[in-house]
Design a protein around this nucleic acid. Sequence first.
RNA 1: GCCCAGAUGGUGGAAUUGGUAGACACGAGGGACUUAAAAUCCCUUGGCCAGUGAUGGCCGUACGGGUUCGAUUCCCGUUCCGGGCACCA
Length: 967
Amino acid sequence: MAKEYNFREIEQKWHRLWTERQTYKVSEDESRGKFYVLNMFPYPSGAGLHVGHPLGYIASDIYARYKRLQGFNVLNPMGYDAYGLPAEQYAIKTGQHPEKTTFANIDRYREQLDKIGFCFDWDREVRTCTPDYYKWTQWAFQKMFYSYFDEELQKAQPIEKLIEKFKKEGTWPSDEKAQSDLLMQHRIAFLGETMVNWCPKLGTVLANDEVVEGVSVRGGYPVEQKKMRQWCLRVSAYSQRLLDGLDTIDWSESIKETQRNWIGRSEGAEIEIKVYNEEQGARSKEQENTDSSSNPLAPCPLPPAPVSFTIFTTRADTMFGVTFFVLAPESELVDMVTTPEQRAAVDEYIKYVKSRTERERMIDHTVTGVFSGAYGINPITGDKCPIYIAEYVLAGYGTGAIMAVPAHDSRDYAFAKHFNLPIIPLVEGADISEESYDAKEGIVMNSPISPDKSVAYDGESLCLNGLSIKEAIAETKRFVKAHNLGRVKVNYRLRDAIFSRQRYWGEPFPVYYKHGIPTMIPEECLPIELPQVEKFLPTETGEPPLGNAQIWAWDEVNRKIVDKKLIDEKTVFPIELYTMPGFAGSSAYYLRYMDPHNDKALVSPEAASYWQNVDLYVGGSEHATGHLIYSRFWNKFLFDLGVSKTEEPFKKLVNQGMIQGRSNFVYRIKDTNTFVSFGLKDQYDVTPIHVDVNIVKNDILDLEAFKAWSPEYATADFVLEDGKYICGWAIEKMSKSMYNVVNPDMIVENYGADTLRLYEMFLGPVEQSKPWDTNGIDGCFRFLKKFWGLAQSILNNPNNQNTPSAEELKALHKLIKKVTSDIEEFSYNTSISAFMVAVNELSQLKCASRAILEPLVILIAPFAPHIAEELWESLTTDASLRKGESVFDAHWPQYEEKYLVETSVKLGVQFNGKVRFDMFFPADATPEQMVEMVTSAPEAQKHLEGMQIVKTIAIPKRIVNIVVKPC
RNA sequence: GCCCAGAUGGUGGAAUUGGUAGACACGAGGGACUUAAAAUCCCUUGGCCAGUGAUGGCCGUACGGGUUCGAUUCCCGUUCCGGGCACCA
């Protein structure tokens, strides 16, 4: 008796059996090769999963199952990035503890995930907010605190080595505070006074990747620059290694390029500029006068004028075109160079700059600036050039000071035009009358303008005339280095990561303040658990939320957390009130999955050696400058420590595209409760209204469901076309407010998980963003029903021991070949197509051979595991050989070329590149034989008549083309 | 402004190293079965033209050129869409 395809029964059965049999439990197995598949773990939001979330999970699940069938020991874990802002904000609103809502959300996620049938080893689940997990986040932070980055070795080293070095040099201070301050400048995790992105609305600082165009990524609130003492990670130290590593990993070019941009390496030179002496002389005199005077109204003593300052340039070749220097307004040099005459003007300008927000500065690029009154001396030409202060120079990049070459830099050009400063062209043939010539191509001139315009050092003076720009850059660098005028320098745009947040729902720092000196709580005492608080908001005194915690002081003697009241600054000290940012917990989770229950180490050396790193990582490209940089940094640090066994954490990265929503609209005739169908709406004055896509099928509205949808529409009237109400549609972001959220549970309920899996993959390439369109899902459902039907007809055929026919074997082996190569390339949509073709072929051949069905079931197993398991069981019940085993313990079939051999091939025969007719050729025909056959074929004669053959092209299995021309 | 990726029917998308463009699926149209619906099955489906018809011809992979016997594929230029970086010297 042929059974119906009852997906509900089948899927429930196998979910149960998989759990009972622990089908997906993995452990280290030296006898088999490992393969580590990983998804970016989700943040469990309150909204639950929509159909976009599982896209990547399904893609990686297919790959994981495929690899397992190929004999690999596959690690495919899942967990939750459980710390996050939404839970905290919800807690502030409702008073519910974020842990409670987070865990409830996790349960909901788990339930939804289980329905889709993933092969996750749930014994390895991690949650970043549980103490046994964040113990190792805190541990890694402490390791970073106790390490510094050795520039020479280009790797992290224990801080003791640095102390030794200082002691040897005699620069090690005796004062404890001074020691702490000195080491802070070198530690990889350090407390730094830096300009930070402060978001007043969120009440916290944000990392650079959390701010876009001057507003916070979360919430879109304005962000301002503020100087604050914060924990930072010295990510910038790893800039070069982060850059070099990109060449060794299999990631998309666009993601690598994004990271290269973000790291922003630029090679240049730092050159020392002396401040003009005469000014300094005048100022010294004035200072003396002030000092000798006892007049209380006398101006404050001027700070000492600096002897020199350093500028950074990537265009060392343009030294002869410098006509002024510019300092960033925030630079400490400003106060030092400003002359008394210009003091008022400069102060006013600084005030103006401070009044502008980051956002204003980013959008508005009008030229502003002020003369400092001082002059700098160009060391190459000996020229005296004015020093300006202008906001277009950034304090945070390079040295905060530049040399301005208006002829060849557009920003300098605009500034020079505005302030009427000279412009000296340096490139032959470059027209600089309207704009600067910024390109690094051309031949250098005017360098120097005349021989006496180049200062000689040790008898050598610089001349670049006639060189290409590239040569000139190299020559200038050599000259500067040789005569000690500066040094060659590489700058990176990548900044250190700000690692503290003024929030509650995050990892607490295992740090206390002993007389104001940050001190690590001993490693054996970790984890330091997040304390309970009454309120999740900042305290009245402006402290972060942890300021509300009562039991939050460190007792050094008893080595435990005690009541704040006991703080005496002798043995009991206050604990850090900041918490760690979101990326702290997500930076090394892939290592924890290797050994998730180990309470002695983040990961045991054995597990780390076996699993190495992630072979396939699947997730969204929006993490390019956040998680994917931090994680690489974190891993490199742990690699330096010997904890991680590989330099790069993720060998291959696949970015799944976003699934957009496809919204549906109904059209209400103005001021009525009548709705007009899409095709007729232009005849009325209508308002489009979003309608829930779940009550629309193939753009046809379910009228009864619509009436039931909202009481407002209970009495709605409709103007139909062809008896149907057709809805309009648009592609928008999937969101609740547009009623276009499609929930995977609904699809699973109506079609089954196998259909959902198949359809999500059939929609198009995994990497591509595409709108969710439920319209096509029937095709995949039909296919599974056909597949099931084919299998049933084979299973129920009394003659099923038949040996398969040549056609059947050909169809099968064609499929094995196609599916195998497609899975390797993540071309799941085309392998599903190939399946559809093969099943149609086999159905038409009335295939009845079990020998065909068995490999067919294995082939479909990664895509539709439930149906495959069910059929596998049917195949093996009477044989009782493999009873109880999973199809995933079987072996992936190999295709055999002998079944695919064609005896003859049909090829298009062309004359002058145009296809004229088809012809059959023996599959092994040589090009000469093919041409011979064509020219003697009767159909060819009319094309050859009155013509002569100029050339013949014959490619076996491809094409035959005869080029002819009239005789 | 700089860098990266892309553009193929009504729709999602196929197309090995340049070799019969539009696989597969959806939608649409027609038909079979059925009291009817659902389900299932069969046929047609890029555009235009000619023909009763089998069929034949022309155009067609964003646009304009080029290389080639032959270009969706390679090269140059243009337009449009998406992504990243951006007073980074």
